[in-house]
Design a binder for these strands. Structure first.
Length: 495
RNA sequence: GCCAGGGUGGCAGAGUCUGGCCGAACGCGUCCGCCUGCAGAGCGGAUCAUCGCCGGUUCAAAUCCGGCCCCUGGCUCCA
């Protein structure tokens, strides 16, 4: 079975058939004007898993993800987290990269920045002017939408009916209301950023003085929003790439404009498959965060739930399907991850406890391992159905638990296969960190201390002092240590 | 208004492209039993779905066709 993906360009599920290797993948990254929130993480994690699955299928992947570090919204933050547009952008890029690391994202090959690609952008704009697709007006350059026949093919928009893009000043300079800016004359005006400013920001007029401008054939100015992705995609990948991914909110105008300017410039297809990640939704009746609308920042979410629960939550719905963020949906993800991890740990402990030469064979466990692998593969090949992939792993934990509970003697080989399946599919492909908790010194010390408390508790239990024992258990739980009494004595997990 | 995507059990959410294995998956919840000092975890079992509405095609429809209703997102900076 081959990989099939839903291509927004056609609206159809198509066989994925890259031109040649490596597979060229571009993800429209963030504007670095705010900390990343869970909605951004949804995009990241899904692209990450797409990347990982392509590699699992044997493809080599070249993955590029940009940072938009030149933007009015960044200028609006001057004074809050830096003294200039460039400062603010740099500081957010730093926190965003930290967030990506803590989410266990695989690194892209390149994280290009707009500010470092001005020459390429200017070249591209010149090319469009030369070819008659763009025109200059008062030091700005606009793309002439009517000159590109396919304009609107991604978003199914009708140029005639479209609302005008851009500021009133821009409107008067444009030939058609739907034309969009490739290059904008001069710097940033105070009124362009006032709406975006928070407390702590510098006065708009001062902030605007820090906005970067560059010399161009049309005079001092700044690149328009859309041109950057075309320029960076072509620079770091190729004029035609395989997969372009972004949030669904970018379909129009951003991606539509990218296609127009790129294909007008090269005369060739810009991206063969367009995949759009549906936006995470939050119910308005449930405030999850004070700072960022209804979403927690990535850092807060990781602090609360840990990276594995966050990933499990985001992968619990396919990238394409609606997903809601609230306490129930996250709670379900939490349980799902806990169950997977417990199943994995039980399998490991069982394997360690038995002789590798054991001849016991469990037909049901072996079948379950095989089913998990093929169900997982089918799900991922079906337009990256990560929900289905998670379900397949869950069925494996069910089979492991049943085997361990029902049988006197364990099937060593099947358990090893189960462990390998968790690690490869859950770990390598879904990016969940199985059995990762005990690899630093602090954790070891914590574990030793918990053992000590549990020894005391066992003594209290032996003496019949159950109230004391329960208090200790409750105290540990308050610290995030989950205690379970078993036939072999107490066991615990650090939360 | 226009564009896109949805409406499946108490919740959440696969399945719809490629009609029959769907008498509808996994999970959560609820109930019973095992285990247990208790709890949790786990195991065994049970409970819970006229698949938005109406009509059509078919031997057969959650799945295909037509009409209607409702929801979400986008159309302005946004992953």
């Amino acid at each position: 079975m081959t990989l099939r993906v839903t291509n927004s360009l056609t609206g159809e599920r198509e066989d994925f058939d890259p031109d040649e290797e490596p597979v060229l993948l571009y993800y429209c990254g963030l504007t670095t004007s705010d900390p990343a929130h869970l909605g951004h993480a949804r995009g990241w994690v899904h692209v990450d898993v797409m990347h990982r699955w392509l590699e699992e299928l044997g493809y080599e992947v070249r993955h590029v993800e940009n940072f938009t570090d030149v933007n009015e919204k960044i200028v609006a933050r001057v004074g809050e987290s830096g003294d200039s547009e460039a400062d603010v952008a740099r500081s957010y890029i730093g926190t965003i990269i930290d967030d990506m690391r803590s989410l266990n994202l695989k690194r892209a090959e390149v994280y290009p920045r707009v500010s470092e690609h001005i020459p390429e952008i200017i070249d591209l704009v010149e090319r469009l002017v030369d070819r008659g697709y763009a025109y200059e007006a008062n030091g700005s350059v606009y793309f002439d939408v009517t000159s590109f026949e396919d304009y609107g093919k991604l978003s199914n928009q009708d140029v005639e009916e479209m609302e005008a893009q851009g500021s009133p000043d821009e409107q008067s300079e444009k030939r058609n209301p739907a034309d969009f800016a490739l290059w904008k004359a001069d710097g940033v005006e105070p009124e362009e950023i006032e709406d975006h400013q928070h407390g702590g920001a510098a006065p708009a007029a001062d902030a605007c003085k820090t906005a970067q401008t560059w010399d161009s054939p049309w005079g001092e100015g700044r690149p328009g929003w859309h041109i950057e992705c075309s320029a960076m995609s072509m620079t770091h990948l190729d004029e035609t790439i395989d997969i372009h991914v972004g949030g669904q909110d970018l379909v129009f105008p951003h991606h539509e404009n990218e296609i127009a300017q790129s294909e007008a410039a090269t005369g060739d297809t810009f991206a063969r498959y367009w995949l759009h990640v549906r936006l995470l939704e939050a119910p308005d009746d449930e405030k999850m965060s004070s700072s960022l609308g209804n979403f927690e920042s990535v850092a807060e979410a990781i602090e609360h739930y840990g990276p594995n629960v966050v990933r499990t939550f985001l992968l619990s719905t396919a990238y394409h399907s609606p997903a809601t963020y609230n306490s129930e949906t996250v709670g379900e993800a939490e349980q799902r991850w806990d169950a997977l991890e417990r199943g994995y740990e039980r399998a490991r402990e069982a394997v360690d406890s038995i002789d590798a030469r054991t001849k016991v064979e469990s037909e049901s466990l072996r079948t379950a391992v095989e089913d998990t692998r093929s169900d997982f593969e089918d799900a991922m090949n079906d337009d990256f159905n990560t929900r289905g992939a998670l379900t397949a792993l869950r069925e494996l934990t069910n089979a492991v638990n049943a085997h361990l509970d029902d049988v006197e003697e364990y099937d060593y080989r099947a358990l090893r296969e189960a462990i390998e399946t968790f690690e490869r599919l859950g770990g390598e492909v879904l990016g969940l960190a199985f059995g990762d908790s005990a690899d630093d010194g602090d954790v070891e010390l914590a574990e030793d201390l918990v053992e000590l408390v549990l020894d005391v508790r066992e003594q209290e239990r032996a003496a019949g002092n159950y109230d004391r024992a329960d208090d200790l258990r409750a105290d540990l739980e308050a610290l995030g240590v989950e205690v379970q009494d078993t036939d072999d004595g107490p066991e615990f997990r650090l939360g």
